[in-house]
């Protein structure tokens, strides 16, 4: 998704220059830019006085952070227990095949990112997926494929 431009200095100034601000900063940067660039990482480390290696250790430990730009469209398929039982793995396989990427990856043309999550809290509507922040209750592969086709034609 295209995000509005946010000034990175504004984000950095929002949090006190202390080591425990690291995760807050990475989260805000991830939210604003969809990924954490090397430049952003350096700015963060200078601000809070944490070595780059430690910041990268944190950024790679947590699943929410991406060190590479995400695609224009983000598809997240729930693989929580309820969704698993209702056939979510089949949806993921088909998306992998169509997009030629694995979960966690982005297509070369930077159009789509595919991710899986564990429970979106709407288990009653399983299987659930989220496309560009919009919930798709009772997702089926044909339904998702139609949605993808629509995105391509737009």
């Amino acid at each position: 998704m295209i995000k509005e431009h946010v000034d990175i200095d504004d984000i950095i100034e929002r949090h006190p220059g202390k080591p425990e601000s690291l995760i807050f900063l990475l989260q805000d940067i991830q939210a604003a830019y969809n990924y954490i660039s090397p430049e952003a990482m350096t700015l963060v480390c200078d601000h809070i006085g944490v070595p780059l290696t430690q910041a990268y250790a944190v950024a790679t430990f947590y699943q929410s952070f991406s060190l590479e730009p995400k695609g224009e469209h983000e598809i997240r398929v729930c693989l929580g227990t309820a969704c698993h039982l209702k056939g979510a793995p089949r949806i993921v396989s088909e998306l992998e095949r169509r997009l030629g990427i694995k979960p966690g990856e982005t297509t070369k043309d930077l159009k789509y990112s595919l991710d899986t999550v564990n429970c979106l809290g709407a288990c009653a509507l399983a299987p659930v997926s989220v496309v560009d922040n919009e919930y798709q209750p009772n997702t089926t592969t044909p339904k998702l494929v139609r949605l993808l086709d629509k995105m391509v034609s737009e």
Binding site: E20, L26, V50, V58, F61, S64, N118
Partner: peptide
């Protein structure tokens, strides 16, 4: 409020504390 960052193990008490302290939640 501290937001988690997508790691199941952070629900474990000591990992959760480490995460609040701003580090990898082991």
């Amino acid at each position: 409020i501290n937001r988690g960052a997508g790691a199941f193990v952070c629900g474990e008490s000591t990992a959760l504390f480490t995460s609040i302290e701003g580090r990898a939640g082991e």
